[in-house]
Amino acid sequence: MWKTIFRRILIMIPELIILSLIVFILAKAMPGDPFTGSINPRSNPAQIHHLMQVNGLYDPWYQQYWNWVVHLFHGDLGTSYEYQEPVTTLLMQRGANTLWLGIFIVIMMYVIGLPLGIYAGRHENKLPDHIIRAYTYITMAIPLFVVLVIGIWIFAYGLNLFPTSGSISPTANGFWPSVFSRFYHIALPGMLVALFSTVNIVQYLRSEVIDAKHSDYVKTARAKGVPMKEIYRHHIFRNSLLPIAAFAGYSITGVLDGQIFAEMIFSYPGMGLLFLNAINYRDYTVITVLVLIFGFLNLMGTLLSDIILAVVDPRVRVE
């Protein structure tokens, strides 16, 4: 198994190289440059020209790419044009924020989704099942950004229950106050994203439970005289949670999607907001690095799913 994981990671290297090439070329193909946006009436065109030259932006793209790769191997991801800070520093701050929010969303998604899916499957076609399914259809039908805008309007601006922006209050000092302040800032966007992203978990789990309920091994367990309650515990839930566990790796990508909206609307200084700004300002160094990181997380998620599946399902051998 370790051999396979190692091989899979090795295969990721060419994948990431190709991804970086594509991103690099696409970013360069976008109209505009990092400096035109900050032009004001007092700007000197010659100075912008000079800046472009100094930053190597007139070089052919392969030259730029090569320079970038060489720097990358020296641990230098370049400097953000917009923030005038090394990208690594930016990532450290923003990455931590995104991680906080992301973990919160994933945990809440499963905390909400698992019981609902199990309950709906167990009481198939009864009232609670209909209600739970209606909930998932509604959340699927409403676009996330609409929910977030309405959410911030009602709960943050209207009821004043939550902050409208930021990741931590500047007055929070000490360990517990800062933990609390962070949580206070992510609670609303996190809950909203989680509540509106459970549809896959709920529906998938529900149909797994229903399948398991009618499976032959459940019939065998019934014939053994095992009470139905115990059958649910030992056979049905266990077996239907398995594909959900494997699904966890893939859900990383899905969470990132929703998170970009949340960070934008709640002005939450995470990687998603950074990414959107970088695109607006043609901050090439930041764009490339972020896409690479997202791509890397995606590949890791897939690998993680395969590993989880191999660990929990004896029928799957990673060989």
Partner: peptide, 8 residues
């Protein structure tokens, strides 16, 4: 006999 046994 395959489906009658719990695979896990």
């Amino acid at each position: 006999p395959l489906s009658a046994l719990n695979p896990l």
